[in-house]
Design a protein around this nucleic acid. Structure first.
Lengths: 199, 199
DNA sequence: AGAATAGAGAACAACAGGAGAACAAACAAG
DNA sequence: CTTGTTTGTTCTCCTGTTGTTCTCTATTCT
């Protein structure tokens, strides 16, 4: 995270103490007065720096729009474990990262999110960069799209077909072929329950 | 939940305290008087804001129709307006329906959700049954995927290309062709900002 | 000196909040 | 049912506030 200057730290502290008191967010003029500033323009630059640092939500023109990115908000949601790309282990990101999902996507069983890398499921409408919500599970039904660990090494997102003794992983990309494994080569790590994409 | 302004909070408090006292809902004129307003028009805007925030039920012309939405009913999320299918107007569903979306998908401008019907955007990974999050807007940049109203009649989800005097709507389906319209045939109703799919 | 940092202040655009007219739907009285 | 009043809705216009963007100046630090 970006390093804060003295002024930015000071502003952030004021915003935080205000938030604790459940007050409505201050206007620029109010903040200026409390800081001893006489120019909103100067303050604006500092606020922008805080937005860049991710400590404050961007306020698109709204009045009294200064909003802290509250600790609560950061804790809500499901853990974002990393990026999943066919052919590689899951590339972990910072443990603490979380992403917010629709309520209906937060089921009773533990779930986590992964960001998809690559086009192996493109025919199922799962694109590079999309977020997938995975329900932790060691078993799946045939036809489910699962996160599968292959030979204890690489992880991939594929549609699964389980036959006695063997497991077939179907990519959804006309340019790729299904892969056939022995049952003990594959460990199911979770089942796809939802997909989220931002434009 | 959307943020309330001073006045809106004040009005909401009055409505709530009235409800506690089992009184019948006030008329606009009564409310105006208690608030020191002299224009019903001004009050109406505030009430509408409360409706949008999901704190008050929409009152379709009824007199003394201001009804609070009970705390349990106050689902957070964005309104789910209906299904959108190429070639038909938006098929409206119950006004009250809402769906929950990731926080990051609830922007500062008003947004709503539609359920996609049909395969016209399948090559973009937008499938039948998916939910799309639309930002209300009458203008869009070239290349944006928009909800477009054609000839005041049918509504569709397409990628837009605006040229002087004409507008081209590109489906994302190899089996369909782009459609060319005069600029005044098309009204942009919103821009695609997010996609949600359940498995 | 030169670059980064802070601030002042003007000018602008977006927004909140209100006034009032005109209209239409709802209601009440005859 | 008809009439007139109340009441909700829509519209345009106005005002002061507030966020944003500039340019210019001063300060600090290497």
């Amino acid at each position: 995270m970006m390093r804060l200057t003295r002024r930015q730290q000071q502003i952030y502290d004021i915003l935080r103490s205000d938030a604790d008191m459940m007050q409505r967010p201050p206007t620029y003029d109010e903040l200026c007065h409390r800081l001893g500033l006489s120019s909103r323009g100067s303050l604006h630059k500092h606020i922008q720096a805080l937005v860049m640092a991710g400590l404050v939500e961007p306020m698109a023109g709204k009045q009294r729009g200064i909003r802290l990115v509250s600790a609560e908000q950061q804790e809500q949601g499901i853990p974002m474990l990393g990026r999943i790309a066919a052919g590689y282990p899951i590339e972990a990101v910072e443990q603490t990262e979380k992403i917010s999902v629709p309520d209906a996507m937060a089921g009773s069983k533990p779930r986590y999110a992964l960001q998809v890398s690559g086009d192996s499921m493109i025919d199922e409408g799962i694109f590079d960069g999309d977020y997938v919500v995975i329900e932790q599970s060691a078993a799946a039904d045939n036809g489910d799209i699962v996160v599968a660990l292959i030979d204890q090494q690489e992880t991939t997102l594929k549609r699964i077909e389980q036959k006695p003794g063997k497991i077939i992983l179907h990519p959804a990309n006309a340019a790729m072929s299904p892969m056939i494994y022995k049952a003990d080569q594959i460990q199911i790590q979770g089942i796809l329950r939802g997909l989220i994409r931002y434009y």
